[in-house]
Design a protein around this nucleic acid. Structure first.
Length: 931
RNA sequence: AGGCGCGUAGCUCAGAUGGUUAGAGCGCACGACUGAUAAUCGUGAGGUCGGCAGUUCGACUCUGCCCGUGCCUACCA
């Protein structure tokens, strides 16, 4: 007789191997048919909302691993909040405006030989719009393949008319409350393309510059000895000299005044003149200017001469303004003279020091075409890149220089034309950080206050964002671009004052809502100005708003406009780079218009690196594509990778790490599979056993379920999925597979089907299975769905429509828990002894052994009431009480015959009989035959 | 160069307020089982806790410096 047929083995359709790459798309299709997203919304309609507001990715390419990490983490959080019973509605979005898309379209133009400037702006913008829509669709597909559950049928985009109009309305709020102002600042400017460039459009390469040493004669100085002396500056950009309005030196730097006593023939320096230089640079300057000898007149530091005033080198030639000397900590003695020439219109640092700090006016000296303004004496009409030698010569002619040279150095160039770029002063629109406009408090302090009331995950993010807000300058909203929301402002031709009229703003906003913001470029200004203003009196701003303003307004046009969402959001979640980006701009936008942050919590994750911790790059060939992992291993593996990493820090990924994830996956999958097989056909109404009637081991499992349930709920609230994953994995691994399942196999397989012990075991396994599926559902969303389907057989249901299983409080039993910690440690001690016996050939499998313990009374008490043999999975085990403190373990081969059904060895069975049946099994067989 | 982080076994991670031989899981090696079977069980070997110096009776845990690395800025006259 084949006794295998009489043993109650686990039975399930749930396959051991997932075959995820093939299975997952089928599950996605199932969810589609089921209308999972809609069903969940309906079911949670009245539940408390949980809003994780999606930071919009940029719609211009395929997903990379960083996108995958970000969206998976969001999905895990949403699904887990849903498992807590909340209405976690996820509305994905896209950022559509901006430079990179504009570039792509321009690139296409160049290939076709078209000129961007000849294409009507509306047409150009339409092409950008189409481009964004194209990638948006591709990304949507890819996100959905990752298992991300959300409102994919109705996502938000920054380019929808409604969004564009609300973005404009938001700018209108800043306009109306007075914090939007017209200023100017130096921007990177390409004279060739006649356009401003973004940082990202600039590349550095070598450039040969004409350098000059120019003298600034002292007019007044705290040090009397410097009367009649000159400060000498060095610059690589002679063309900025007409724009010079100041100088800077370092407070701590030692300088000397030097009377020149000998020069080479070609030197421009004059014998007898006194020049000031940093001591450290004296020799190099002498070398380059042909000064041979000089006497030290006096020594001093920058601090001694702060507040000095000098003459411009071209003084009395039309540059008759005074040039003040300021202290600046960025002045170094690495090169130059120790004195830095300051042209506030031609460098960010110059601007900050002279204009922002000292209030020096910023002159407009260079036109869009890179030509020095015609009205400027001597240099008018000269080109900033081509005419530097000429400028130097003229300055020399008028005695302004003590040296001319050249320098090859790294210099910014335009990415597109590869021509050198310059800093040029340009009119810009700013949002003030400090002006009082919201309840009498400046934006900066409102924002800082808001951050105090925001939860950060990890906590260090708060410090980072605070220090950025503390230090940032006013928000420059202007971009000299085409693809974006225009800054919807008019300003007066004469006064330069922006037009602040809510009626005008409203007309603009409603036009944008109906026709999109292209109308700003295609409709006459009168349409917006209405009858109250004369078109001829106003200039219409044609700048595009910084795209960070777009995405910074998502709370306004998504959270506040959708009935199914709310503001502020519970959570914003992005990579740590977004401290500078979305977290930052959203905070400022919301604080400036609503006086509060648009989020209650901010979670940041790290960046994805390769297995060695290097950043991914095409040249290193270490790029891991999410598409490839999905194709080879499945999205669940990628999702498992996310939660098995410490995502607050940078994450690593590579072949070995993926391999480890598949190992972990298999462990969890096999645990589910075993449970599914074990509870096959389980009927709760007739089979279930109450905890009080269960063996203690079963009550220990229930206790563990209760313990885990609490930990998992707590960790869910803290967004700590790494912790959850570890708990679940170790539970599957150590508690269930290696211990509980193994110990209970005999009972499950061989005991009489309806024995109390077996029913208790199946009851506990049924609970464990339900808990486990619900616990892993947020992460292994596909596998959990598949397991649940195998469990219920109900095609109309999904685990994702459920919550974490209810675990009754009374399952907790700390006394049992404490006791079983001790029992298990005792058990592993005995396992060592069994292993030793196995290695010396005394025994093979555990059932071929019998164990005899000599133990203390305490140990014996610990094991009281427990079937020691089944705990150890041996054929027999007994315990004697001895007076020894240490446990003595003796293992020997079990004597007797082996039961052909349960494989245990019994002394009463004849060893030679290969058909012997033990008494337990005989009873079971009789009962079975009576069925 | 500056701001904010990170650096514990091959891999992923634990290690309140400094205190006995630094933990877990995976992987690996060896073994067992063949009734979870491209599974399962057991045992074991792996770490100068990035480096150096200091504070302390005592530091993976505190301080300083250095090295490596990531994000964000600045790369300038």
């Amino acid at each position: 007789m084949d006794y295998k047929q009489t043993v109650f083995l686990p039975k399930t359709e749930f396959p051991m191997r997932g075959g995820l790459p093939k299975k997952e798309p089928e599950i996605l299709e199932r969810w589609q048919k089921l209308g999972l997203y809609d069903q969940l919304r309906k079911a949670r309609k009245n539940a408390p909302k949980f809003v994780l507001h999606d930071g919009p990715p940029y719609a211009n390419g395929q997903l990379h691993i960083g996108h995958a990490l970000n969206k998976i983490l969001k999905d895990v959080i949403n699904r887990s909040q849903s498992m807590l019973g909340k209405n976690a509605n996820y509305v994905p979005g896209w950022d559509c405006h901006g430079l990179p898309i504009e570039w792509k379209i321009e690139e296409q133009y160049r290939k076709k030989g078209k000129d961007k400037d000849e294409v009507p702006i509306a047409e150009f913008r339409q092409e950008c719009r189409d481009f964004a829509a194209h990638w948006l669709n591709i990304q949507s597909e890819e996100f959905q393949r990752l298992g991300i559950l959300g409102d994919w049928g109705n996502p938000y985009t920054t380019m929808r008319y409604e969004a564009e109009s609300i973005i404009a309305a938001e700018m209108g709020k800043f306009l109306m409350n007075g914090s939007l102002y017209r200023g100017s600042k130096p921007v990177m400017w390409s004279p060739v393309e006649k356009t401003a460039l973004a940082e990202a459009e600039v590349e550095y390469s070598d450039h040969k510059s004409v350098t000059i040493f120019a003298r600034f004669k002292v007019v007044s100085c705290p040090l009397q000895e410097l009367q009649g002396a000159s400060f000498v500056i060095w610059t690589t950009t002679p063309w900025t000299m007409p724009g010079n309005r100041a100088m800077a030196c370092g407070a701590e730097i030692p300088y000397s005044a030097l009377r020149i006593t000998e020069t080479s023939d070609s030197s421009l320096a004059k014998l007898g003149e006194v020049i000031c230089l940093a001591d450290e640079l004296k020799d190099r300057v002498f070398d380059e200017t042909g000064i041979v000898k000089a006497d030290v007149v006096t020594r001093f530091t920058g601090a001694d001469i702060a507040g000095s005033v000098a003459h411009h080198p071209m003084f009395s030639q039309g540059y008759d303004h005074d040039v003040p000397l300021f202290l600046a900590d960025y002045v170094t003695t690495e090169q130059g003279t120790g004195f830095v020439h300051i042209a506030p219109g031609h460098g960010p640092e110059d601007y900050a020091l002279a204009h922002l700090k000292h209030g020096v006016e910023v002159p407009d000296t260079v036109g869009e075409d890179g030509l020095i303004a015609e009205h400027l004496p001597l240099f008018g009409g000269m080109h900033v890149l081509r005419d530097n030698q000429k400028i130097a010569d003229i300055m020399n002619e008028y005695g302004g220089l003590i040296g001319i040279g050249t320098l090859v150095h790294s210099y910014p160039h335009s990415w597109r034309s590869h021509a050198p770029v310059i800093y040029r002063n340009a009119a810009q629109w700013f949002v003030s950080m400090g002006d009082e406009h919201v309840d009498g408090t400046g934006l900066r302090s409102v924002a800082l206050d808001a951050l105090q009331n925001t939860d950060f995950y990890p906590a260090s993010g708060q410090k980072r964002l605070i220090s950025m807000i503390e230090n940032r300058p006013d928000w420059c909203l202007s971009r000299q671009r085409a693809w974006g929301v225009p800054i919807p402002v008019f300003y007066h031709k004469q006064t330069g004052e922006p037009l602040r009229d809510q009626a005008v703003v409203d007309r603009i906003v409603s036009a944008f809502a109906e026709e999109g913001c292209d109308v700003w470029f295609t409709s006459p200004a009168a349409r917006f100005l209405g009858a109250d203003y004369n078109e001829a009196d106003y200039i219409q701003v044609k700048d595009i708003a910084d795209v960070w303003f777009d995405s910074g307004s998502t709370h306004a046009f998504v959270l506040e406009t959708r009935e199914d969402l709310q503001s502020p959001a519970d959570l914003y979640l992005e990579g740590s780079d977004q401290h500078r980006g979305w977290f930052h701009s959203s905070l400022l936008e919301s604080c400036g218009t609503r006086g509060q942050a648009p989020y209650k919590g901010v979670l940041t994750h790290g960046f994805v690196l390769d297995e060695q911790g290097r950043k991914m790059s095409k040249s290193l060939g270490n790029v891991v594509a999410p598409q490839k992992i999905i194709q080879q291993n499945g999205a669940d593996i990628l999702r498992l990778w996310v939660v098995s990493s410490d995502y607050y820090d940078d994450l690593r990924i590579g072949p070995e790490i993926i391999k480890r994830q598949t190992d972990h996956y298999r462990r969890i999958r096999n645990t589910l599979r075993y449970l599914l097989g074990a509870v096959n056909g389980f009927d709760r109404s007739t089979e279930a056993v109450q905890p009080a009637e269960m063996p203690e081991l079963e009550r220990w499992v229930l206790h563990r379920l209760a313990e885990l349930d609490q930990q998992i709920r707590e960790n869910t609230c803290a967004y700590d999925f790494h912790g959850i994953f570890t708990l679940i994995h170790d539970f599957c691994n150590s508690d269930l597979s290696a211990f509980y399942f193994d110990v209970r196999k005999d009972c499950l397989y061989c005991d009489e089907q309806n024995s109390l012990d077996r029913r208790a075991c199946r009851t506990v396994m049924d609970h464990a299975l339900q808990c486990l599926i619900s616990w892993v559902a947020p992460v292994l969303c596909f596998t959990a769905d598949e397991a649940w389907l195998a469990y219920t057989g109900d095609e109309t249901d999904s685990i994702h429509l459920h919550t974490y299983m209810d675990v009754p409080d009374h399952w907790r039993d700390q006394l049992v828990a404490d006791r079983w910690v001790k029992i298990r440690s005792l058990r592993s001690e005995i396992m060592v002894a069994l292993e030793a016996a196995r290695n010396d050939g005394t025994i093979g499998g555990g059932l071929s052994a019998e164990v005899k313990l000599t133990a203390s009374q305490d140990t014996a008490d610990l094991l009281n009431g427990i079937d020691l043999a089944s705990l150890l999975i041996t054929s027999a085990a007994e315990i004697d009480i001895g007076d020894t403190a240490n446990l003595q373990i003796s293992v020997r081969r079990a004597e007797g015959g082996k039961c052909v059904r349960c494989w245990k060895v019994f002394a009463y069975l004849p060893a030679e009989n290969e058909q012997a049946i033990c008494s337990r099994c005989e009873t079971v067989l009789i009962a079975k035959s009576e069925d």
